[in-house]
Computed example of a mutant assay.
Amino acid sequence: MSLDDDFSALLGEDVTPLKRDPIAPKTATKPSAAAIEARRRAALAATGGDGNPLDSADQPPQLQPYDFLEFVRPGVQAGVYRNLRLGKYELQARLDLHGLTVEQARTALWQFARDCQKNGVRCALVTHGKGAGREREARLKSCVAHWLPQIDEVLAFHSAQRHHGGLGACYVLWRKNSETRLRTAEQLEQSRKKLGR
């Protein structure tokens, strides 16, 4: 029994199956130079035109000059965050944003983040100032608090201790890069061997 016979038996003699047109195989087409350029321009526009994924922060959530900055990603141990807050980690890099425009600070912070990750920095200090008494108070401080969580490599940040700038600066804890993780794993392995495990 053919497929047509099965179809007729199921639905009756007066119903006939639709005829199918042969389907042409799809052929891969290479995008045109204009399409590639349009995609490139769209990607640059999405990242602010300079490859920087931090948004322009025209209107970040407004902080006050004497507000504390605090942020921690899920999974960061409470003791690690406490030590960061207390300024117990060695500061391996510093960035001072005083005197910069918002756009200059945005560019500087993104470049600093890339440099810290490349060089295996774990803890850094970002000085943004309090911005007290300004026309738009705490503008850079508000922007920094808005931008840092957008950087995947930032695990946590908190306003600094007084001797490091207090409420005008913050400690930033960075995720380990692959080289640092490998070095840590090697050190753990050596420690295990010494202990005879």
Score class of each variant (00 low, 15 high):
Ser2Lys: 04
Ser2Ile: 03
Phe7Lys: 06
Leu10Asp: 11
Gly12Ser: 10
Glu13Tyr: 07
Pro17Glu: 12
Leu18Met: 08
Pro22Thr: 11
Pro25Tyr: 00
Thr27Asp: 01
Ala28Asn: 10
Pro31Val: 05
Ala34Ile: 04
Arg39Ala: 15
Arg40Pro: 00
Arg41Gly: 07
Arg41Pro: 00
Ala45Asn: 10
Ala46Gln: 11
Gly49Trp: 04
Gly51Trp: 01
Pro53Val: 08
Asp55Gly: 00
Ala57Gly: 10
Pro61Arg: 08
Gln62Val: 12
Phe68Val: 12
Leu69Trp: 05
Val72Pro: 00
Pro74Tyr: 01
Pro74Phe: 05
Gly75Ile: 08
Val76Pro: 03
Asn83Lys: 14
Leu86Tyr: 11
Gly87Val: 12
Lys88Asp: 14
Gly99Asp: 13
Leu100Gln: 15
Ala105Phe: 01
Trp110Met: 05
Gln111Asp: 12
Arg114Lys: 14
Cys116Asp: 06
Gln117Ser: 10
Lys118Val: 06
Ala124Glu: 08
Leu125Ala: 06
Gly129Glu: 02
Gly129Arg: 00
Lys130Ile: 08
Ala132Lys: 09
Gly133Asn: 07
Arg134Glu: 15
Arg134Val: 07
Arg139Gly: 07
Leu140Thr: 11
Pro149Gln: 09
Gln150Arg: 12
Ile151Ser: 05
Val154Met: 03
Ala156Tyr: 04
Ala156Arg: 02
Phe157Gln: 02
Phe157Lys: 01
Ser159Thr: 10
Gly165Asp: 05
Gly166Ser: 04
Gly166Ala: 06
Gly168Ala: 08
Gly168Val: 11
Cys170Asn: 13
Tyr171Cys: 01
Val172Pro: 00
Leu173Arg: 10
Arg175Met: 13
Arg175Asn: 14
Arg175Phe: 07
Arg181Glu: 15
Arg181Asn: 11
Arg183Glu: 14
Ala185His: 09
Gln187Arg: 14
Gln190Trp: 09
